[in-house]
Amino acid sequence: MATDNLTHLAAFAAVARHRSFRRAGAELALSTSAVSYAIRALEERLGVGLFHRTTRSVALTEAGQRLLDRLQPALGQVHDALEEMNHFRAAPAGLLRINATRAAVHTQLGPRLASFLRAHPDVRLEVAQDDGLVDIVAEGYDAGVRLHEFVPEDMVAVPLGPPLRGLIVASPAYLRDRGVPQHPRELVDHECVRFRFASGHLYKWQFEREGQALDIDVPGRLTLGDQHTILQAVLDGLGLAYVLEDAARPCLEDGRLVAVLQDWSEPFAGWVLYYPRQRQMSSALRAFVDMLRDGYASQISS
């Protein structure tokens, strides 16, 4: 009975995190029907409903939210106790879940995954691509990858690479037709491809030169939420866009794009992997962090 209770509570916590029986099952390596059975059994045992279910959504009831609030610290302690046992293993093992922006996966994590998995055959790695600002603890992730400025202060941050730079880019054809802006304020007279975060926040283009900082709310008929889609729109001549230099570099090098206002583009702290300071670090996460630190040290020394 005690084992069943723990299994049912783990299923409850997973469904609460994902708001989905299917995704909870994928995390727990269970079928959707097995997760549904566990939730029904738990609800029958407690005598209360824990979720509001419709064909389109799953949401916690008031009782479910109360149970989740009380349960999360205890499940965290169980997780830490089990992970601590991995320190007695000869090699890292277990599931490592990372939430990262799509740009970071493309430029930073993607090139490193194969070597990491080959070096640690007992580790299972799940990387969720999400451009929103995610509470990695509440969502059940071991670590996240974001730009340094978006990392909560209570997290440990590990640099993944050197500082980054944002650039304003356009196609040569667009600049021939509309002219080259000489100052950020001239952008109000241009067509701009804007970026909206998954949270709904519309990004204002940021500029800095010799201590002078400007935030420009640029105009534009097209707003997108993915940097690679934005680059394609700029290649198609739809306007100027603010993108990371790393993402635009291939197009700049072959002449398909041109950077403007470069004297207003100063470097800023780049991508970091971050994780909770208070939680016991799993052996898999420790191995991943060690790999990242070694890679960053190599970049700095080269």
Rank of each mutant, 00 (worst) to 15 (best):
A2P: 05
T7M: 11
L9R: 00
A10Q: 13
A11C: 15
A14V: 02
V15Q: 01
H18Q: 11
R23S: 15
A24P: 00
A24Y: 00
E27S: 11
S33D: 12
V35D: 00
I39L: 13
R40G: 04
L42T: 00
E43Y: 00
G47P: 02
H52T: 10
T54A: 06
R56W: 03
V58S: 01
A59F: 08
T61K: 05
E62R: 02
L68F: 05
L68V: 01
A74K: 14
V78Q: 12
V78F: 08
H79F: 12
H79D: 14
A81W: 06
L82P: 04
N86F: 11
F88W: 08
G94R: 02
R97Q: 14
R102V: 06
P111D: 05
R112H: 10
A119T: 12
R124N: 08
G132D: 14
V134S: 01
G140F: 03
R146E: 11
R146M: 08
L147P: 02
P152K: 12
D154Q: 15
L160M: 15
P163D: 15
R165S: 11
A170H: 01
S171C: 06
Q182H: 13
L187S: 03
V188A: 12
V188Q: 15
C192R: 01
R194G: 03
R196S: 04
G200Y: 02
L202M: 12
L202T: 11
K204H: 11
K204Q: 14
W205N: 00
R209D: 07
G211N: 12
L214Q: 07
G220S: 07
L224W: 03
D226Y: 05
T229Y: 05
L235V: 08
G239K: 00
L240R: 04
A247K: 01
A248Y: 01
A248T: 01
P250K: 07
L252K: 07
D254H: 08
D263C: 06
S265G: 08
A269T: 10
G270H: 04
W271L: 06
L273W: 04
Y275F: 14
A284Q: 10
V289M: 05
L292C: 14
A297P: 04
S298V: 12
I300K: 07
I300P: 08
S301E: 10
